[in-house]
């Protein structure tokens, strides 16, 4: 049986990849993909803990299901925003969008 630490390691790697994508990539779609990866890292963690912890009541799995749903919704909203931003500034390069400057 694969021990818990493996799962956690995979999850940490996935999260780091996702964070990198979010922080360093310019394309907004890739940023969104990064976010998805980070979400899945979290889901993996939840399922792993749910499986390995003594009181196994499927709580983690359920949370993961919720997480997936939310991720789907979030992507939909995110892509809509990306399109809206593209219409406004004619680009989806996130480092050129400086509207948040106070």
């Amino acid at each position: 049986m694969i021990p818990l630490s493996h799962f956690l390691t995979v999850s940490a790697v996935l999260f780091a990849i996702g964070l990198y994508g979010v922080l360093a990539r310019k394309n907004a779609v890739i940023v969104l993909m990064g976010i998805e990866i980070m979400m899945n890292a979290a889901n993996l963690n939840l399922i792993a803990f749910s499986r390995f912890l003594p009181a196994n009541r499927l709580t983690g799995q359920l949370f993961a299901l919720f997480g997936i749903t939310i991720a789907a919704a979030e992507v939909a909203v995110g892509l809509a925003l990306v399109i809206a931003i593209f219409r406004m500034v004619k680009t989806i390069e996130v480092d050129r969008i400086e509207k948040l400057k106070g």
């Binding site: 480092d95 400086e98 948040l100």
Partner: peptide
Amino acid sequence: LQTGRAQDYLL
């Protein structure tokens, strides 16, 4: 520090 880029803030 306030660049206006969301990525910087996240960083």
